Computed example of a mutant assay.
Amino acid sequence: MTERTRDAPEADSPPERPAGPVAELDGVTREYRSGGETIAALADVDFAVDPGEMVAVIGPSGSGKSTLLNVLGLLDVPTAGTVRLDGGDVTDYDDEARTMARRRTIGFVFQSFHLVPMLTAVENVLVPTMFVEGDQRPRARSLLERVGLGDRLDHRPDQLSGGQRQRVAIARALVNEPRLLLADEPTGNLDRDTGRNILEEFERISAEEEVGVVSVTHDELVTEFTDRTVELIDGVIQ
Rank of each mutant, 00 (worst) to 15 (best):
G59H: 00
G195I: 08
G162K: 10
R165V: 06
R104Q: 10
E220Y: 02
R228Q: 10
R139C: 06
V222I: 06
A41G: 09
H155K: 13
A97E: 04
V168R: 04
F47S: 00
I170S: 02
Y93C: 03
V175P: 00
S13T: 15
L149P: 03
V168Q: 05
V175E: 03
L72Q: 01
G162N: 10
D46L: 05
E224I: 01
V90Y: 00
V28F: 08
D89Q: 06
M54S: 12
E37D: 08
R102Q: 04
L85N: 00
A80P: 03
V132K: 14
D154M: 10
V236G: 06
R141M: 13
E200W: 04
E185Q: 06
K65G: 02
T129W: 00
V214Q: 13
G64M: 09
D227E: 12
E201V: 15
P138K: 12
G162R: 09
G35V: 06
V214F: 12
V116H: 12
M1N: 07
D227C: 14
V125A: 11
R84E: 03
D86W: 09
P138E: 10
Y32L: 07
Q111C: 10
V77M: 08
I58E: 13
E24P: 09
E37M: 04
S206A: 04
T2R: 10
P21K: 06
V77H: 09
L160W: 11
N70T: 02
G188Y: 13
A97S: 06
V22L: 09
V83N: 08
R204L: 07
E231Q: 14
P15C: 05
L126Q: 01
V213Q: 11
N70R: 08
R6W: 08
E201I: 15
D184S: 03
T82Q: 14
I39G: 04
D219Y: 13
A48Q: 15
F47Q: 01
D227K: 13
F108Q: 11
L149G: 08
E201Q: 15
V175N: 03
V125R: 13
V211M: 07
S161N: 10
G212C: 02
D227T: 12
G212D: 05
R102T: 03
D135F: 11
R179G: 14
T29D: 12
L149H: 06
A40K: 11
E16R: 15
I205N: 01
V22P: 01
E37T: 15
L160N: 08
F202R: 01
V230Y: 01
D26P: 00
R84F: 04
A80Q: 11
T91F: 11
E201D: 13
E210L: 01
H114T: 07
A97H: 07
E210F: 00
Q238F: 04
I58Q: 14
D193S: 11
V168N: 01
L144I: 10
L68P: 01
R156D: 05
V214I: 15
A8V: 03
